[in-house]
Design a protein around this nucleic acid. Structure first.
Lengths: 164, 164
DNA sequence: TGTAACCACTTGCGCAATGCAAGTGCTCGC
DNA sequence: GCGAGCACTTGCATTGCGCAAGTGGTTACA
């Protein structure tokens, strides 16, 4: 996503920052998968992102203010990536993308369970999730409800169902 | 957007269809600008899309069921592109993209007026707009309210304000 | 009836982005 | 001290993007 500056249209500007095949995948994995380091993002990537592409996207997303990077106090060579408030506000967008894909593409059953919950929960759920992300990434107080836990539990249940 | 089939995740599938810098721009212009032919899309493109890229995107979007193409009864060499129901259901997604871009990028004032209206109107406005698109593109009955007209009027008012 | 403009693309070519595989240099555990 | 882990980087081939020019049919007008 080079800064091309094609026009001042808000949709275009969003596409200039996020309109490629990997940026939102990386944000999705940090957001819904809680992958916080380069290694986790690389090894557990559902889509098999290449290492150089991942490095490039982490750099770009950090540069344009969607991610922050800090050293891990436990492992001196590890870096922890966190979402910024701007990235957290992509939750409704990703929820809509998931809903659209669920309806108009052919998603796998297990992977669309979370999309279904997100769609059914609507804005109330998204806001609760965003509060939780602010806790996990920005140091805000822990909210009462853990949407992340709910999504994860539903996903694992679907996985178990398939394994049987 | 080649069909890469990286994973069955709905977000990934949506990105595989629409995750590039031009596909959603084309849909935006058809949807909000009512550009219905190749020539209109090319000449009035705010971002200056290249002719071969436009041809390619129209072909792809038609192939994957987001657009339909039919001859213009008035001009034998003209083709009219229409949105399908799947594309019309991208309205909330584009509205969120516009809202995010308006908040987190630096949009031009005139071009963000429509985004502001879309955001303030919320799902009720989006649904009214989708009904109108079904009239314009799918032959459904004309709804009472013309969101398209409202958006256009606000945009032109903003343009006039700038011209002064 | 000729001709100029219009229309929907296509082609050629240089450059940038993508993707794979391998490599680098530091750090941690033992 | 040494192998495994970590966060990237590098080289190279393939693919996609973007500009400019071209193509072949159609319409409008003199």
């Amino acid at each position: 996503m080079p800064q091309t500056g094609r026009s001042g249209c808000p949709i275009n500007l969003t596409l200039e920052q996020l309109g490629d095949r990997w940026s939102l995948i990386v944000i999705r994995d940090i957001m819904f998968g809680n992958r916080r380091s380069y290694g986790e993002l690389l090894a557990q990537s559902e889509e098999g992102i290449a290492s150089n592409i991942l490095a490039d996207r982490l750099k770009r997303l950090t540069a344009c203010g969607l991610l922050t990077r800090r050293p891990d106090p436990e492992h001196r060579q590890k870096r922890i990536y966190s979402l910024t408030e701007a990235a957290i506000q992509l939750v409704p967008l990703l929820a809509h993308m998931a809903a659209w894909g669920r309806r108009h593409a052919r998603p796998s059953k297990e992977l669309s369970v979370r999309a279904e919950l997100l769609e059914k929960g609507g804005p109330a759920l998204w806001n609760a999730f965003m509060d939780e992300l602010r806790h996990l990434h920005l140091g805000a107080p822990r909210p009462a409800r853990s949407v992340f836990g709910e999504l994860q539990a539903a996903y694992e249940k679907a996985l178990a169902r398939r394994a049987r």
